[in-house]
Design a protein around this nucleic acid. Structure first.
Length: 951
RNA sequence: GCGGAUGUGGCGUAAUUGGUAGCCGCGCUAGACUUAGGAUCUAGUUCCUCACGGAGUGGGGGUUCGAGUCCCCCCAUCCGCACCA
């Protein structure tokens, strides 16, 4: 073989490693550039071809930037804590650290084979105590800070304490509080805080499950019952940053769809909070002694409740109110006559799982409390209902229902025969009878009608007018609501970061910073304890000696000097939220990262990864970074300047078709008359080539197919195919190692890019890889003669050859800049085809070309670079400059179209005017043919573009 | 239901500003070289038509000298969110 990738690739991988070619310093005269891949979890299954897609794209960009003279940071590491390793530990007793170590080794081996330019000296692992020391440290900072709403930034909790001591109105009794009261109050401000949060508790598994781990009220694993239960959990007050998380999206260079996903997730909605007074007269048996409510609406003396609405302008159309089943007011206001019915409903609704409530969206349910509220603007009595369509966790858990202009209110009103009153019309002053409507009018446009002082106003103006009015009346205010929830930060798991927290009398206290890291203890079992404690409950050495400042045996707990430590661990996103900052200074034992490192690198310039992190990781990491920014650690408010989402790689499954009539017979795809006569069976894609089944391998694949018989077409068995998720069970998983072995890493890299735009989801299909491999063989032959001897010569290149080169430089440069790697691969193919045609072996052409190819195919580039006599790595070469003078032509081949349809082309000199062009083509036979000899109506001449004749 | 994205040959795709639709590759067809081909090279390959020519970028309409590209309506597929007031 002439192009011997098997020899070339390991050789240069060794060279790069031995010469530390990819080592990066934290200082340089060069401009800096930070390229980052999303943190991989090292799963036991290893890499499949979908994983490296993004790594290859970012590797190309990183190498390109380096060639353009940048000092490029391109690190890699492992998000090493996670459930699969723990699950495996529970099953086998093997320590998750061991499993993780083995998986990382396998990942590393696979990554190395593909020839990435990672600086492995900077590798981090979230499960390494030297790393998670800083995860714990950040947690303590969160614990010790609160969010100052006025300044819109985090500030030390000690400053808040000082304000309280000086008689802040938020805590007038501070100075007379005891320690417990003070800590409980502070807990309401800390950015990392403990709170009772409803979770999916599975008693059988002794653990809390995520929503997607619960189906129909049962755990996915094991099928055990799951209940909603309040549990004391650590949470991060990410909601304080909601506004900044929305605003920050304006500054970053991400796709619109990803920004939209984040905006939806944060779910900002503007509206008004309004206090509705209860009609206490009608409820005086429930609320004895209540005072008159009119005309003064001060919410304090008059019993009232708060609602949130995004449509304050429709307040004149309120015909009922709805409380969520969890609302605390229900017990107080329900009339004796309604009591039984309401209690039954509330019990029923509370016991319904999230699933059920979601599945039956269309069903309307609810119950009247018997109580009334007063519309503060119209002074009407409005019935108060309870329904599960109002959610406890959003707004205030209570709404004013405007059935004419909200589809859910509308459905509810129709179901319970409640009045519907139109207060907005599409056309000014044109109303219709809502009784005849089939649906509500939800649009936020139009004019207010039947609405007192706002009648005749546009919706937008009416909103403002109503809010102004209620503010003036002192019964409400303009406000903003977010869908975003605080992030639950406790996990009842073993394989995660321990919290540096111990408990004195049930009050959490931080371990001193100097004592970090608090290392994960050994446990006898990875399961929860018999009493339902998290796995750390099994740890013997798991108590804190406050005096000695060290971990001691649990048996020494006396709650005087020795206290119990927190038993939960942190979730996966703890370690992966700030890892990009740690890469800047990964071995620093005195700080998360040094100011000089972060001042040099600033933030990530390019972040590449899957869109599946759109709501999880990317929100948490932005929050984490903003907090670190507030406390003066990170220097940019946003962590990831530009972000490219790689598309998912789907699997392409192959099928054989077994006859239903004859169990041993397999019918080739094209011969099947009726699909009902056959059973499609997944077949391993590794024994199929271009959809043709390797019959011998198929017989050997499974014992039951040893004697399989086939109905062939053209002596071949043609398989069917389908695009599905890449998964083991569908036998469509493509492992990069197999391809590297067969075609080499350069071909794999180039082929993954050739598949299509990086951002687009696409099926994996090896049918085209041969073409890319052929390209490399052709490319190799440019530098070698027929006997495979190096044959580059030092002759002057021709004009034509220079044109080919500079066209390629221009196109490839542009393509890389806009992440259009698939088109650069085509460009290389065209270039090599053209140069082969021209039999060009000239150094002046081939040397720059090797540099151009380097980002895509580093091994062959390095080999050719050295063959051409260079000593240092091609990675340190300079990107060729595009020279336009080589592309200038004397003439342009004009397409000539008639009525927009292209008919022929004509070569005209540069600078040709319309008159000259017309003169030149008028006498051509082709011209006469298409005009039919008649005078054209109009001629459009666009220089260097087109000539269009209208006739 | 709401939001986002995508629809181009048998397949993956290209066409960067409204200006020659189908580049490049796979596959396929024919040929050359060869003991052989899963090697290499040459030619062809959107569809209909012997051809002249016609049609053609999910469908329908529009703007324009000219539309894959811009505007309106519809359809399909994928992704995200979803009783969010």
């Amino acid at each position: 073989m002439d192009y011997n990738f098997n020899e070339i690739e390991p050789k240069w991988q060794r060279f790069w490693r031995d010469n530390k070619v990819y080592h990066v310093e934290n200082s340089s005269k060069k401009p800096h550039y930070y390229v980052l891949d999303m943190f991989p979890y090292p799963s036991g299954a290893g890499l499949h071809v979908g994983h490296p897609l993004g790594y290859i794209a970012s590797d190309i960009y990183a190498r390109y930037k380096r060639l353009r003279g940048f000092n490029v940071l391109h690190p890699m590491g492992y998000d090493a804590y996670g459930l699969p390793a723990e699950q495996y530990a529970i099953q086998t007793g093997q320590h998750p650290a061991k499993t993780t170590e083995a998986n990382i080794a396998r990942y590393r081996e696979q990554l190395d084979k593909i020839g990435f330019c990672f600086d492995w000296d900077r590798e981090v692992r979230t499960c390494d105590p030297k790393y998670y020391k800083w995860t714990q440290w950040t947690f303590l900072q969160l614990f010790n800070h609160y969010y100052d709403e006025a300044q819109q930034k985090a500030r030390p909790i000690s400053e808040l304490v000082k304000q309280f001591e000086e008689g802040d109105e938020r805590a007038p009794e501070w100075n007379s509080m005891d320690e417990r009261q003070r800590q409980e109050l502070l807990m309401q401000y800390r950015l990392a805080y403990l709170a009772d949060i409803p979770v999916n508790w599975c008693a059988e598994l002794g653990t809390v499950l995520a929503n997607d781990e619960v189906v129909n009220g049962l755990s996915v694993r094991g099928g055990y019952p799951v209940e909603r239960k309040l549990m004391r959990q650590w949470s991060l007050r990410i909601t304080s940053y909601a506004q900044r998380l929305v605003d920050g999206l304006e500054q970053v260079d991400w796709s619109d769809s990803l920004k939209e996903i984040q905006r939806n997730w944060i779910g900002r909605s503007e509206g008004a909070a309004v206090w509705f007074p209860l009609d206490v007269k009608s409820n005086d048996n429930v609320l004895p002694g209540a005072q008159a409510y009119m005309p003064q609406f001060d919410p304090q003396p008059v019993p009232s409740f708060e609602i949130f609405t995004t449509r304050p302008d429709t307040i004149f159309g309120v015909t009922f109110m709805v409380l969520c089943p969890e609302h605390e007011l229900i017990d107080e206001i329900t009339t004796p006559e309604q009591k039984a019915e309401v209690e039954a409903y509330v019990t029923w609704a509370k016991n319904r799982s999230e699933r059920e409530r979601q599945a039956e969206v269309k069903k309307v349910s609810g119950v009247f409390t018997g109580a009334y509220a007063i519309n503060p603007l119209t002074e009407e009595r409005i019935p108060i209902w309870v329904s599960e369509y109002v959610l406890a966790g959003y707004g205030t858990g209570a709404i004013m229902a405007v059935p004419a202009h909200d589809s859910r209110d509308f459905a509810f009103a129709r179901h319970f025969n409640l009045p519907i009153r139109q207060v907005v019309s599409m056309e000014k002053d044109v109303t219709s009878d809502p009784a005849k409507w089939s649906e509500s009018m939800d649009a936020k446009t139009g004019w207010s009608v039947n609405s007192g002082f706002v009648t005749g106003m546009k919706v937008k103006d009416a909103m403002k007018a109503v809010i102004d009015k209620i503010e003036e009346m002192g019964i409400g205010h303009r406000t903003v609501n977010y869908r975003l929830r605080d992030a639950i930060f406790s996990r009842q798991r073993y394989w995660g970061e321990p919290f540096p927290i111990y408990y004195k009398d049930g009050i959490p206290y931080p371990i001193p910073e100097e004592c970090l890291p608090l290392e994960l203890p050994q446990v006898s079992e990875y399961k929860p304890t018999a009493t339902g404690e998290p796995p750390l409950g099994h740890a013997e050495m798991w108590a804190w000696d406050e005096k000695k400042r060290q971990i001691v045996s649990k048996s020494l707990i006396d709650n005087v000097n020795v206290f119990p430590l927190e038993l939960s661990t942190m979730p996966g996103f703890a370690g992966s939220s700030g890892y990009y900052l740690r890469y800047m200074d990964p071995h620093n034992d005195d700080a998360y990262f040094s100011p000089s490192a972060v001042n040099y690198w600033q933030n990530v310039d390019l972040y590449v990864g899957g869109a599946e992190h759109g709501t999880g990781h990317l929100i948490y990491a932005r929050f984490w970074n903003k907090f670190l920014f507030d406390i003066g650690m990170s220097v940019k408010d946003e962590p990831f300047q530009k972000l490219v989402n790689q598309g998912m790689i789907q699997g392409r499954s192959n099928f054989v078709y077994r006859s239903k009539a004859d169990n041993g017979l397999f019918i080739s795809k094209g011969l099947i008359k009726n699909m009902d006569d056959v059973t499609p069976i997944h077949v391993d894609i590794n024994i199929v080539n271009n959809d043709i089944l390797d019959i011998d391998k198929f017989r050997a694949w499974r014992p039951e197919y040893a004697n399989a018989r086939f109905e062939l077409e053209d002596d071949k068995y043609i398989c069917g195919w389908e695009i599905e998720k890449m998964s083991k069970s569908m036998f469509n998983v493509q492992n990069p190692d197999d391809l590297v072995e067969r075609y080499g890493a350069d071909t794999l890299r180039m082929y993954e890019m050739f598949l299509g735009p990086v951002e687009q989801a696409k099926p994996w299909d090896t049918n085209g890889i041969e073409g890319v491999f052929r390209f490399f063989k052709k490319f190799w032959r440019l530098y070698h003669d027929e006997q495979n001897n190096y044959a580059v010569v030092d002759e002057e290149p021709t004009k034509a050859e220079l044109k080919i080169l500079h066209q390629t430089i221009k196109k490839v440069t542009d393509d890389i800049e806009r992440f259009s790697f698939n088109t650069s691969v085509s460009t290389f193919m065209i270039c090599v085809n053209d140069l082969a045609q021209a039999k060009c072996r000239k150094r002046a052409i081939l040397e720059p070309l090797a540099i151009l190819v380097l980002p895509f195919a580093p091994h062959i580039a390095e080999e050719l670079w050295h063959l051409m006599g260079n000593e240092s790595s091609v990675c340190d070469a300079q990107w060729p400059e595009y020279d336009e003078s080589h592309l200038v032509e004397d003439s342009f081949k004009y397409p000539v179209s008639f009525n927009g349809k292209m008919r022929f082309t004509v070569d005209l000199p540069n600078g040709c005017t319309q008159d000259e062009a017309v003169k030149a083509i008028k006498d051509l036979d082709e011209f006469k043919k298409w005009t039919g000899g008649k005078e054209p109506k109009k001629i459009i001449f666009v220089p260097k573009r087109i000539i269009n004749i209208v006739c």
